[in-house]
């Protein structure tokens, strides 16, 4: 029987994350479920900057800050050191989409391929929010960012689809890979617990709304994230031992909501709503995904 730390907070208030940011919700729950015997490796990003403004820290467990590109490499080293000394602890990486899907992908690929016993948690707010809302490879098609501007020449915003990072990591034969969403709370919690229970490289891709970059009212954070699941735009699934053929969808919306409901709550998609063809294209893409994979 492992101890239950759910009522303890290993992530302290007084941090500088924007009001309504979803990332601290994800972090506080991962730590509640992992407990105090945990070492966190944190890639550069909003989370690192806003939780460790010198001389303060919000972390009540050992915490290591590394650059954008090498959090998975540093975590590999931490895990190897633990193995060498015979000590046991959860090694958990928190990285944003910039530090994970773009800049840190090489280190992450190496970490998974070498089989390090690390849980990597990607909190994906779908752009470089900390540096001024630049697009990343995790930015979805149709989103406005400061480097995928919307205007006469480009009415769409970002022209390329989101990189399917969870499937890419699963293709490395990672022990456990799942997509998750804190608004679908029981599914999210179960996946964190499951990820913690395995040995080997594990990867959680967690959607995390950003009030500043997604342009929404801070009180709507969870409501918008729930719509990401209920429109089918961000499917929730898990893949064990790299068995992508047997990917298991863990959350089927009872009734799919039209994608407009998600789009209309966020300033970054406002331009799409003026153009029914673009909304229809996005809806068709979502429908095609669920037709292809929805039986899983």
């Amino acid at each position: 029987m492992t101890e239950n730390y759910e009522d303890m907070e290993f992530f302290a208030p007084g941090h500088g994350m924007c009001a309504g940011c979803a990332a601290p919700i994800i972090v506080k729950w991962v730590l509640k479920l992992s407990g105090p015997n945990t070492i966190v490796v944190n890639a550069t990003g909003c989370l690192e900057v806003a939780t460790t403004a010198y001389p303060h820290t919000s972390w009540r467990i050992p915490w290591l800050h590394v650059a954008f590109e090498n959090s998975a490499a540093a975590a590999s080293g931490v895990e190897a050191a633990l193995r060498a000394t015979g000590e046991k602890a959860n090694v958990i990486v928190f990285g944003g989409d910039g530090g994970t899907v773009d800049i840190g992908l090489q280190a992450l690929s190496g970490m998974v391929e070498r089989g390090h016993n690390v849980l990597y948690v990607l909190y994906d707010n779908e752009a470089y929010m900390n540096t001024g809302i630049q697009r990343s490879s995790a930015t979805p098609w149709g989103a406005w960012t400061t480097t995928s501007k919307v205007g006469k020449a480009n009415p769409i915003g970002k022209l390329r689809p989101k990189k399917p990072i969870a499937r890419i990591i699963a293709a490395h034969n990672a022990k456990y890979v799942a997509t998750a969403n804190p608004a679908i709370f029981q599914d999210f919690k179960k996946k964190v617990q499951k990820a913690l229970s395995y040995e080997g490289p594990r990867f959680l891709h967690v959607l995390s709304s950003c009030t500043t970059g997604w342009r929404h009212d801070p009180s709507k954070t969870i409501e918008i994230l729930r719509l990401a699941a209920d429109t089918g735009l961000f499917p929730l699934y898990e893949i064990i031992d790299g068995d992508i053929e047997n990917m298991r969808i863990t959350y089927h919306p009872k009734k799919f909501k039209p994608v407009e409901e998600y789009l209309k709550m966020q300033g970054r998609f406002r331009h799409l709503l003026k153009n029914p063809d673009l909304v229809k294209k996005l809806q068709d893409d979502v429908n095609a995904w669920w037709e292809k994979y929805g039986y899983h």
Binding site: A12, P13, G14, H15, G16, H56, T57, S58, R60
Partner: peptide, 14 residues
């Protein structure tokens, strides 16, 4: 740089 104790961001009354 010395951070006197873990979780001392509680000194910031946000």
């Amino acid at each position: 740089g010395v951070i006197p104790y873990p979780g001392n961001s509680t000194e910031n009354k946000t």
